[in-house]
Computed example of a mutant assay.
Amino acid sequence: MHSDTHLLLHDLRSAELRRRAVRSGPAPASPGGGLRTRLGWALVDLGLRVLPRHPGRPSSVAAGPA
């Protein structure tokens, strides 16, 4: 496809999506997002603390059979 044609189709599609977004209004807020987000980050922090701190050592799962 010619680049000018591709750009024109992209512009048309983005204009159509903008019109749809204006008609539909703002997205509803997710219920309970604050607690869920904090819990998620706490679990990520916990997972990072559990990981071994030896970056030079290969893991037994990734090493495979010898």
Rank of each mutant, 00 (worst) to 15 (best):
V50W: 12
P28N: 10
G56K: 09
G47I: 01
R19D: 14
R53F: 03
G47E: 05
R57L: 09
G40R: 10
S24L: 15
L43S: 12
V44H: 01
P52Y: 03
G34P: 00
L39E: 11
G32Q: 00
P55H: 00
L35R: 15
R23I: 08
A42C: 08
S59C: 02
P26T: 07
R36F: 12
P55E: 01
A21M: 09
G47C: 03
A29S: 15
R53V: 01
V44I: 12
P52T: 09
G47H: 01
V44F: 01
A21G: 11
A27G: 03
G34M: 08
P58C: 07
L48P: 04
L46V: 14
G40S: 12
P52A: 02
A27W: 09
S24E: 13
L17V: 10
P28R: 14
R36N: 06
S30M: 10
R49M: 10
R57S: 01
R53E: 03
E16H: 12
R23G: 05
S59Y: 05
A15Q: 14
R49T: 04
L17P: 01
L51S: 02
S59L: 05
R36S: 11
A29V: 12
A15H: 07
P58F: 04
G34T: 09
G33F: 14
V50G: 00
D45K: 05
R20K: 14
L46E: 02
A21H: 10
L12G: 14
R13A: 15
V50K: 10
W41V: 11
L39H: 06
G34D: 13
R19P: 00
G32N: 04
P55T: 00
R49N: 03
L12T: 08
L12W: 06
W41D: 12
P58M: 06
G40I: 00
